[in-house]
Design a binder for these strands. Sequence first.
DNA 1: GGCGTCCCCCTACGAAAGTAGGGGATGGAC
DNA 2: GTCCATCCCCTACTTTCGTAGGGGGACGCC
Lengths: 216, 216
Amino acid sequence: MIRTMIVDDDALVRLGLTDLLDGDPGIEVVAQAPDGLKAIEQATAHRIDVALVDVRMPRMDGITATTRLRSLPHPPKVITLTTFDLDEYVYNALAAGADGFLLKDTDPAEILRAVHLVAAGSAMLHPTAARRLIDRYHATNQPEATAAKARLDRLTPRERDVLTLLAQGDTNADIATRLAMRESTVKAHVSRVLTALEVTNRVQAALLARDAGLAA
Amino acid sequence: MIRTMIVDDDALVRLGLTDLLDGDPGIEVVAQAPDGLKAIEQATAHRIDVALVDVRMPRMDGITATTRLRSLPHPPKVITLTTFDLDEYVYNALAAGADGFLLKDTDPAEILRAVHLVAAGSAMLHPTAARRLIDRYHATNQPEATAAKARLDRLTPRERDVLTLLAQGDTNADIATRLAMRESTVKAHVSRVLTALEVTNRVQAALLARDAGLAA
DNA sequence: GGCGTCCCCCTACGAAAGTAGGGGATGGAC
DNA sequence: GTCCATCCCCTACTTTCGTAGGGGGACGCC
């Protein structure tokens, strides 16, 4: 039996959701709260498996509440349930520890499915939330990475070794020790690396190496 | 009418999917292909809105095919449809440009929904794929960032300015020029920054600044 | 007023970093 | 075998970094 809590400032929404969830034989609603503060209280008093949390609420918003809920001793899973699909909502909710992000216009059956999935350790994203997260994934991983990688395979294996350590903030002396070579040799390697990567100093080399995913 | 293509090496799967999609009044299947190479051919010959692409295929796998499809003049949207939910599959498919990731055990109605959503510019992720993407999001964005940010607000505004440029690979002389101050002053600032951030050289400072999201 | 913080500036010095140009050894490619 | 790339090493030199420790001015706070 999945023990759930409903957090929403609108009493009607709470009623509707309670009805929906209690109608599922595997789910029971054990708590409700009209705002974030009450939600924390309830979560400490009851053992909650999954909390459905609205974003816009008085006193304490759903994002903050999610962060708090997730740092409790036995943190409930959180599904963010909102009317608006603003992108900051999505990012912030996920960063706060939500495992689900749904809009309130979602098909009731989907909501039930989400509760089951999230309780089981999986995740559920509304299509527009998925869209935003994918876009974000592209934004953080793709752009520089490809250009950087192209330059990176102009390096010899040993030069790559040196760059890897350089990209961790090691000095030439550190690198020499860790790779068992003279510092003069390290300098020679670094110099060639800078030329190959078309940068003028080691900071730029380090940043480029990071972008390319070196030393992950 | 959404024009779709089905790419799968299993003839039975193609048959089943064709049946399913053609049964939807808003969708028509205009092409099929048993492997990636054929898929590229088909996509250049027909105008495709959405391609459902398997991952494991002979000759050219679905990930590579997705990359190619997405770089065509009029790139079709891609939904990756696979039997296995290996995490590399998810990352690679999305990196290659897929907007949907589903497992073959997905409810048929969900597949139809995915085609509509993806055609409309939205995205659709299977719960386990969503799980992996969220985990990845946490991995890339959270851990160092918080610790780094804490140290970062020990800096004065001017020190932050200096660090921002430093984190772009500028030399002290560059920074001095861009901030209209003497290099000696820059050095003093940098020295204080290193102390405040508890690092020993500028490379480490630059990396930490990056982690904290400075100069995004 | 006095105190603290931030900012800009300085000199002087030691320590890293980077350049230039060399030598010698290995090992695979042809 | 010869050629070529890679690797390790070197000296000598210049440039850049970073530290240490100083001074002076602006601002806000109590």
